[in-house]
């Protein structure tokens, strides 16, 4: 790792002020991606602002049908939360499928979605459940949050504070995990929400995306059969050593059908 300065701010306001005072500083959440990135010298911030000491960024609340998860809440805490299991069991399952137990004890919701890794699991939940991302400056709808490969709607220095998930009527997440890393080769969240059916995919493209054709078909008939002829363009799929674009396009259909079968 290159050398850097380490600071542990005490509050969101303190972190944001320090971040805006130094263009070269970066936030450190759980560090499950950032620390390996620093080790490989793929990033060279002059200053790390460790968010680990900010208690207002942690915690889970369930109120009036909305589940709110603090940005620095660990995957393990989401997976084990009785409020999450009660309101959105699919989200608990998703969080419990990330990486391995040691990674889940450190990795955070905010860190995951701010990174917008194309194979991360949480983006499928943020898009698929119609969540809202609350930052220190504004609210961003889940549909508008992910912009591309490792790219989000966040402005430089903007800090995710929490994410609110409206409780769906029913939802399921199915993924085909990479057998070594447990990253999603393809993961699909299918949810019936107050505003309609949502189908969101992670792992397959540059960032999480919805499939409107599947949503429309499921609105007419909620069955795996209803989407059997709906495909995603192979040209939009990721193609790497883990899976070809053709295979990923195929897996999108398979995982969507499995998710539908799990909740139908």
């Amino acid at each position: 790792m290159h050398a850097f300065e380490y600071i542990r701010p005490a509050s969101v306001a303190d972190a944001a002020a320090k971040r805006s005072a130094n263009d070269d500083s970066t936030y450190l959440a759980g560090g499950m991606t950032l620390i390996p990135t620093l080790k490989q010298r793929l990033a060279q911030p002059s200053q790390l602002l460790d968010l680990g000491g900010i208690t207002e960024l942690k915690g889970i609340t369930l109120k009036d049908g909305v589940l709110t998860v603090g940005a620095m809440t660990s995957h393990a805490d989401v997976a084990a939360s009785s409020d999450v299991k009660k309101s959105i069991p699919a989200l608990a399952v998703l969080a419990g499928s990330i990486g391995d137990p040691q990674v889940r004890d450190r990795g955070t919701l905010g860190g995951s979605i701010a990174n917008s890794d194309p194979s991360a699991d949480y983006p499928a939940a943020v898009v698929g459940l119609g969540a809202t991302v609350h930052t220190n400056k504004r609210q961003i709808s889940g549909d508008q949050f992910f912009k591309g490969l490792f790219e989000t709607a966040l402005e430089p220095g903007e800090l995710i504070v929490k994410v609110s998930f409206p409780t769906p009527k029913r939802a399921a997440y199915m993924k085909f995990p990479n057998p070594a890393s447990r990253y999603a080769v393809v993961g699909v969240m299918v949810a019936e929400t107050a505003t309609g059916i949502r189908v969101a995919v992670t792992g397959a493209g540059a960032c999480a995306f919805r499939i409107p054709a599947m949503e429309a078909a499921l609105a007419k008939s909620f069955s795996a059969d209803a989407i059997k002829n709906i495909t995603v363009p192979v040209s939009d799929m990721n193609n790497d050593m883990h899976a070809t674009a053709e295979y990923r396009a195929h897996l999108v259909g398979v995982m969507a059908k499995r998710a539908i079968a799990a909740i139908a």
Binding site: Y6, R8, L28, G31, L48, D50, A76, V103, D105, R106
Partner: peptide, 12 residues
């Protein structure tokens, strides 16, 4: 809680 000590800073 179990964590991977190669993937966190001593200062954390």
């Amino acid at each position: 809680k179990p964590v991977k000590s190669c993937t966190m800073l001593a200062l954390q």
